[in-house]
Amino acid sequence: MDMKTFKINDAATTQALGQRLGQIVSAGDVILLDGDLGAGKTTFTKGLALGLGIERNIKSPTFTIIREYKTGRLPLYHMDVYRLEDGGGDELGLDEYFNGNGVCVVEWSQFVASELPTEYLKIAFKRDDRDLDSTNRTLTITAHGTHYTEILEQL
């Protein structure tokens, strides 16, 4: 398991890192985004979508659970499974997404841990809470599997 840490101090840098990842991901990739509300998960996903060539505005899928964007180099499946903290992930057919031809981004992945594939890229977003107005973040990216280690090395 390989790991890299990025210190980020604004939304533009968060988005740029996402955009870089969007340029190197391939079909079937699964990216988990974990962190508190407002930590930058959706901002990162907006960048990832740009890297895939998706120009539509990316909104947090909190209420729809899954949003699909199919106008880029690869389809993007953006999932926010926060509302599944009491279970129910097995009814969504997540396997079909994870084994499909797109890129899956899963926010709050701990709530569907039993549904996740064994290999993925996990990004933990940590806010600098010393100053509530701070835009400083630490992103810790962990690769689970050889394919994701190769992606991590390109970031």
Score class of each variant (00 low, 15 high):
2 D>S: 10
4 K>C: 01
7 K>M: 15
8 I>H: 02
8 I>Q: 04
9 N>V: 12
11 A>S: 09
11 A>P: 14
13 T>N: 02
14 T>Y: 10
16 A>D: 00
16 A>K: 02
16 A>S: 15
17 L>T: 08
18 G>P: 14
19 Q>L: 13
19 Q>C: 07
20 R>D: 08
21 L>R: 01
21 L>S: 01
23 Q>C: 13
23 Q>A: 11
23 Q>P: 01
24 I>W: 05
25 V>Y: 11
25 V>C: 14
27 A>N: 13
28 G>N: 09
31 I>L: 14
34 D>C: 02
34 D>S: 14
36 D>E: 14
36 D>S: 13
37 L>A: 02
39 A>M: 13
40 G>K: 09
40 G>I: 03
41 K>C: 04
43 T>F: 15
44 F>Y: 14
46 K>W: 14
46 K>C: 08
47 G>R: 07
47 G>I: 10
48 L>H: 08
48 L>S: 12
49 A>L: 07
50 L>Q: 08
50 L>C: 10
50 L>P: 05
53 G>H: 04
55 E>S: 14
55 E>L: 13
56 R>T: 14
56 R>C: 04
56 R>I: 03
57 N>Q: 09
57 N>L: 11
59 K>Q: 11
60 S>R: 10
61 P>N: 02
61 P>A: 01
63 F>Q: 07
63 F>A: 00
63 F>W: 03
63 F>L: 08
63 F>G: 05
64 T>W: 09
64 T>F: 13
66 I>K: 05
66 I>T: 15
66 I>P: 13
67 R>H: 15
69 Y>H: 09
72 G>Q: 09
72 G>H: 15
73 R>G: 07
75 P>T: 11
75 P>F: 06
76 L>G: 03
78 H>V: 13
79 M>K: 02
82 Y>S: 04
83 R>S: 04
84 L>K: 07
84 L>A: 00
87 G>W: 09
89 G>Q: 06
91 E>L: 07
95 D>I: 01
96 E>G: 04
97 Y>F: 15
100 G>E: 01
100 G>C: 06
102 G>T: 05
102 G>P: 13
104 C>D: 07
106 V>N: 04
108 W>V: 08
108 W>G: 03
109 S>A: 10
110 Q>L: 06
111 F>A: 06
112 V>Q: 02
112 V>M: 12
112 V>I: 15
115 E>Q: 06
115 E>C: 15
118 T>N: 10
118 T>K: 08
120 Y>D: 00
122 K>W: 04
123 I>V: 07
124 A>K: 10
125 F>V: 09
126 K>E: 05
126 K>L: 10
127 R>K: 12
127 R>P: 00
128 D>T: 05
129 D>I: 03
132 L>A: 04
132 L>N: 00
138 T>K: 07
138 T>N: 01
138 T>I: 10
138 T>W: 02
139 L>G: 01
139 L>Q: 04
139 L>S: 11
140 T>W: 15
142 T>P: 11
143 A>W: 12
143 A>Q: 06
143 A>S: 06
143 A>P: 08
145 G>C: 14
146 T>L: 15
146 T>G: 12
147 H>E: 03
148 Y>E: 01
149 T>Y: 01
150 E>D: 11
153 E>V: 03
155 L>I: 11
